[in-house]
Design a protein around this nucleic acid. Sequence first.
DNA 1: TACATTGTTCCGTC
DNA 2: CGACGGAACAATGT
Length: 264
Amino acid sequence: MPELPEVEIARRNLQRWLAGARIAAVERVDQARFEGDPQSLLGHVCFGWERRGKVLLGRFSGGVGVLSHLGMTGKWVRDDGGRRAHVRVRLTTDGGPRVALVDVRRFGRTWVGNVDALQRLAQWTRLGPDALMGALDGPLLASRVGPRKTPLKRRLLDQSVVAGLGNIAVVEVCWRASVHPHAPCTDIAPAAWVRLAAAIRAHLDFVLEVEDGDEITYLGERAASNPFVVYGRARQPCPRCAEALVGESLSGRPSVWCPSCQPS
DNA sequence: TACATTGTTCCGTC
DNA sequence: CGACGGAACAATGT
């Protein structure tokens, strides 16, 4: 699923493919899940792409912008002209490659319009500090989460607390930091917050490195491999202590943890 | 066919 | 009233 690293890779790709290029044609293949008219990009030059959490923002000449949330299965790909299912919109540039938004489940959403207006949307403004932000250390993370009894997992999944972590990231981060995903936030010691902040950085850097490229195969797609340390590996031995990993739904989402390294 | 899957939001409870 | 947490919602492949 597209979480922060996958969205960051999409940002780099869009930057490389589109920055400096003029949009020569917009082909909207599907009506659903768009707000604003993609045709308003026509004739405009792409200045660049930024990212906050899992949200992409493209800036174009004339004050036009694109806000893109990939949802569960969305991805931006280079369109080589071959047949491809689930294309929602296709952008043709003068000089650069053609680029397409592909989204099987259609949980992704795309807004096109005045870039200042897009930046005032809740989807952009409600986001907490980006999880890749250098200053995200233990104390800052603890203060963002706040003194709640709520399970850690639920708070880390809240994009207004820290932006960019999804279910997979939270499972991986909790394992790396040796903290139970359902630990009440008020029970987490300062040293554990430091480990959690470091684990967020380590996990994101790891996934960025492993998945960097023109197109990511999401877990669950055909021919997908699992690059994660514990996610999707219930009942397998813990890589740290060899105890069998436990898989169970926590906060309504599939979780994996080690009952020995991450005691509740 | 029913279900799994996600981020987000709603709503009931304490 | 704020904190909390279960559940609904979107859409579609298996």
